[in-house]
Structures are given as structure tokens and as C-alpha cells.
């Protein structure tokens, strides 16, 4: 029973983290840009949302908008560093991530902001179901249900937005940029702009995810973004390996959401089975490395088979 509850809670968490995975997907797969700035923008989204609520009494929903805009600004910085100043992609992201560490500390004024006793999106939605407690539902169970509902709502909005946006003229140009820059320029499109635009949308989503996770877990932490890119990649590769045949864009995005949920479930299960939390990042890295090497391994196997004939 314990493990089932843990898995349920984990899948609800997974939905909130899935927004991060979708953001990472935009840069990693669509723009073909390994964007490290996401580690900073995830914490940025969380810090801004927390501080606006705690110190400025903002409506928790409104804080999300500010988080998204801040994330977009962070993406813009990475994009400008890369396209205008010709700094390599990885390094541009790392620089932004570094900048954001200081900025996040500035925003919070400390390493952590607690949302204890604060009304958050999760607590507001929880308040809509006063009878749950009377019916004997445990608070953590209700929390998971609310996480799930809020997560699904945002995921649907985000996927609908991305499906629409990447079907538009500008969206098509961004997709093509990750494919073949020379071709896009030959069609009269400024690829600096498309890259910056793609990075902005990606980091906006990642900041949104950070804000949602913050509101759900009840605190923002300066280190909450550490490993975000690997978690995002893990979700992407799990989703892609499980649904390798999927072609439709919306379904691909859905596959990544499912990947994010499965990732959380795997983590919950291995923790329940007694894995030391210190080893979590090692485990995640192994999963990602293995999944990313699938194409190479498949190819090698194919060559061996052909030679065998």
C-alpha cells in the first residue's frame, strides 16, 4: 500500500516536472541546443513566485506570469550570448546559469524561502474540497490529487500552446533552424532570432515548472534547479524510448509528459526499496546515458548483423 501511495504521489509530482521536460525538449530536440541555463531558470521561476507571494502578497496565479517572463528573459540572455557574441551553446547556458545563481540569491535574499502558511495554487484548490477531510482522506492524498489536477490543467494548456505555436510560420522557422540553419537563412529567416525565440519559450516553460513545483512543495530553494537538465533529459528519453513510433507532434509532447511521470515513479520505487537518496543523481545519469546511447547501440548491432550475413 505504501509503495502504491508513493507511486501515486510521484506521478502527481511528475506532471509538474513534465512542464520542465517539455521546455528542455524544445531546446534539446527542436533547436538542437543543449541549454544549461534551464538549471538557473527553474530556480528563478521558483524564487520569484515564492518571494512575490510571501513578501508582496501577490495572487499565486499571477506570480506564474512573472516567473514565465523572467524565464524568457533568462533564455534571451543565453540566446544573445550564443548568437551575437558567438559563445558556444553549452558555455552560454552555463554562464546564464551562473548569473542566475546570484540573481536568485538576490531575489530571495537568502538560500530558501518557505511558503509555510501561505496560500498557494495548491492550497487554494485544496480549499475547494473541504469535505475531503471529513470523508477521512489523508492530507497527503488530497495534496497528490490536487497536484495531479493542477498538473494536468497546465500540461493541457502548455501542449495546446506548443502545438499551435510550432504550427505557425514563426514556429516552423524555429523547427527548421534546429534542422538545418543554412536552409533557413537561405529562405530569408534570421536564425539568430529564431534561436533566441526558441530559448525564450523553453526557459519560460522551465521557470513556470519551477514556480509550480515550488508552490506544490511549499518552498523555493536556491539549489532546486540542480540537475534539472538531466531530469528533463531523462523524461525525454524515457518517453521517446517507450513511444518511439509516435510521429504526431502533440503525441510526442504527451509521450514526454508520460516519460516525466515514469521517471518520478521509478525514483519513488527505488527509494521505497531502500536506495540511498545520495545515489539518486548517479542513477538518473546512468538512465539518461543508457537511453541516449540506444541509437548508437542499435546501429552497432545492425552492422554486426549485416556482416553476419
Amino acid at each position: 500500500m505504501n509503495i502504491v501511495m508513493a507511486m501515486f504521489g510521484a506521478s502527481a509530482q511528475g506532471l509538474l516536472w513534465a512542464v520542465l521536460a517539455l521546455g528542455v525538449f524544445l531546446t534539446f530536440r527542436i533547436l538542437d541546443f543543449a541549454d544549461m541555463s534551464c538549471e538557473g531558470s527553474f530556480a528563478l521561476g521558483g524564487s520569484i513566485s515564492a518571494v512575490l507571494m510571501v513578501h508582496h502578497n501577490w495572487n499565486p496565479f499571477l506570480t506564474l506570469l512573472v516567473s514565465i517572463m523572467a524565464g524568457m528573459a533568462a533564455g534571451c540572455l543565453t540566446g544573445v550570448l550564443h548568437t551575437k557574441l558567438k559563445i558556444p551553446a553549452i558555455l552560454s547556458g552555463i554562464l546564464t546559469m551562473f548569473v542566475l545563481y546570484s540573481i536568485n540569491l538576490r531575489i530571495m535574499g537568502q538560500a530558501m524561502t518557505s511558503l509555510l502558511g501561505q496560500s498557494t495554487i495548491i492550497s487554494i484548490v485544496k480549499g475547494l474540497f473541504p469535505s475531503a477531510k471529513e470523508m477521512g482522506m489523508r492530507d497527503s492524498t488530497l495534496q497528490s490529487w490536487v497536484n495531479m489536477g493542477v498538473g494536468i490543467l497546465f500540461i493541457v494548456i502548455v501542449i495546446a500552446f506548443l502545438y499551435w505555436f510550432f504550427g505557425t510560420e514563426i514556429g516552423c522557422c524555429i523547427r527548421a533552424t534546429g534542422n538545418n540553419e543554412a536552409m533557413v537563412r537561405a529562405q530569408g529567416v534570421n536564425t539568430d532570432k529564431t534561436k533566441i525565440f526558441g530559448l525564450m519559450i523553453s526557459n519560460g516553460l522551465i521557470a513556470l515548472s519551477g514556480a509550480l513545483v515550488t508552490q506544490s512543495q511549499g518552498f523555493a530553494d536556491i539549489n532546486m534547479g540542480v540537475g534539472a537538465i538531466v531530469i528533463g533529459l531523462a523524461s525525454i528519453v524515457i518517453g521517446e524510448v517507450l513511444f518511439s513510433k509516435v510521429k504526431n507532434f502533440a503525441k510526442k509532447l504527451t509521450a514526454i509528459v508520460i516519460g516525466a511521470i515514469i521517471y518520478r515513479i521509478i525514483i519513488a520505487v527505488v527509494l521505497q526499496l531502500g536506495l540511498n537518496t545520495d545515489d539518486l543523481k548517479l542513477l538518473t545519469a546512468v538512465v539518461v546515458a543508457l537511453a541516449l546511447s540506444v541509437p548508437v547501440l542499435k546501429k552497432k548491432k545492425g552492422i554486426v548483423r549485416r556482416e553476419g550475413n
Partner: peptide, 25 residues
């Protein structure tokens, strides 16, 4: 662009020199 459809590639080319916006691609 290899990962895009034939008609999507043509649509990119059809907009060469035109203004691109948020209309459907």
C-alpha cells in the same frame, strides 16, 4: 530540412522574402 515534411519545406520556401507571423504555417 530533413525532419520536416515536403509540404512544410515548400511552405518555408513560399514565404521567402515575405513577412512571417503567427498565421498557420
Amino acid at each position: 530540412a530533413a525532419n520536416m515534411e515536403i509540404e512544410e519545406n515548400l511552405a518555408m520556401a513560399y514565404r521567402r522574402g515575405q513577412k512571417r507571423g503567427l498565421r498557420w504555417g
